[in-house]
Amino acid sequence: KKPMSASALFVQDHRPQFLIENPKTSLEDATLQIEELWKTLSEEEKLKYEEKATKDLERYNSQMKR
């Protein structure tokens, strides 16, 4: 599977709780709203997800070399 971006990892982490809190929201709308939240994060908060994305890219690259 392809590597995930930092923002995609953020959405993946936050979507389940968002949908619990907003059960009538469609998956598409939830994703859009969480992506807007991503844009408001500080660089420090984004760094955690950027590090995860880097590790996921390394995983992807090692799988492609096999």
Results as ranks from 00 to 15, higher is better:
Lys1Cys: 15
Lys2His: 15
Pro3Val: 15
Met4Trp: 02
Met4Ile: 05
Met4Val: 11
Met4Lys: 14
Ser5His: 04
Ser5Gly: 13
Ser5Pro: 15
Ala6Thr: 01
Ala6Asp: 01
Ala6Lys: 04
Ala6Cys: 05
Ala6Pro: 04
Ser7Val: 15
Ser7Gln: 15
Ala8Ile: 01
Ala8Asp: 08
Ala8Met: 00
Ala8Arg: 10
Ala8Pro: 03
Ala8Thr: 15
Ala8Gly: 07
Leu9Ser: 06
Leu9Val: 07
Phe10Ala: 01
Phe10Pro: 01
Phe10Asp: 02
Phe10Trp: 06
Gln12Ala: 15
Asp13Asn: 02
His14Asn: 08
Arg15Ser: 03
Arg15Glu: 03
Arg15Trp: 03
Arg15Gly: 02
Arg15Pro: 02
Arg15Asn: 01
Pro16Arg: 11
Pro16Asp: 15
Pro16Ser: 07
Pro16Gly: 06
Phe18Leu: 09
Ile20Val: 15
Glu21Asp: 03
Thr25Asp: 06
Ser26Gln: 05
Ser26Lys: 08
Ser26Leu: 02
Ser26Cys: 10
Leu27Thr: 10
Leu27Ile: 04
Leu27Gly: 05
Leu27Cys: 04
Ala30Gly: 03
Ala30Trp: 01
Thr31Leu: 03
Thr31Pro: 02
Thr31Gln: 04
Leu32Tyr: 06
Leu32Ala: 11
Gln33Trp: 01
Gln33Gly: 03
Glu35Met: 13
Glu35Asn: 03
Leu37Cys: 06
Leu37Asn: 11
Trp38Thr: 04
Trp38Gly: 05
Lys39Leu: 07
Lys39Ile: 02
Leu41Ala: 15
Leu41His: 03
Leu41Asn: 02
Leu41Trp: 01
Leu41Asp: 05
Ser42Lys: 12
Ser42Ile: 02
Glu43Cys: 10
Glu44Cys: 08
Glu45Ala: 06
Glu45Tyr: 01
Glu45Leu: 06
Lys46Gly: 00
Lys46Glu: 00
Lys46Ser: 01
Lys48Gly: 05
Lys48Val: 13
Lys48Phe: 10
Lys48Glu: 07
Lys48Tyr: 11
Tyr49Arg: 02
Glu51Val: 11
Glu51Asn: 12
Glu51Asp: 12
Lys52Ala: 10
Ala53Glu: 06
Ala53Cys: 07
Ala53Arg: 05
Ala53Lys: 03
Ala53Gly: 02
Ala53Ser: 10
Thr54Phe: 06
Thr54Arg: 12
Thr54Lys: 14
Thr54Ser: 14
Thr54Glu: 15
Thr54His: 15
Lys55Glu: 14
Lys55Tyr: 08
Lys55Phe: 01
Asp56Tyr: 05
Asp56Trp: 06
Asp56Gly: 09
Asp56Thr: 09
Asp56Arg: 09
Leu57Tyr: 08
Leu57Lys: 09
Leu57Cys: 11
Glu58Cys: 08
Glu58Val: 10
Glu58Thr: 08
Glu58Tyr: 06
Glu58Phe: 05
Glu58Arg: 13
Arg59Trp: 09
Arg59Tyr: 11
Arg59Met: 12
Arg59Gln: 15
Arg59Val: 13
Arg59Cys: 10
Tyr60Val: 11
Asn61Thr: 13
Asn61Cys: 02
Ser62Cys: 15
Ser62Pro: 09
Ser62Glu: 13
Ser62Lys: 14
Gln63Arg: 08
Gln63Phe: 13
Gln63His: 07
Met64Asn: 09
Met64Cys: 07
Met64Tyr: 14
Met64Trp: 08
Lys65Ile: 06
Arg66Gly: 14
Arg66Asn: 14
Arg66Lys: 09
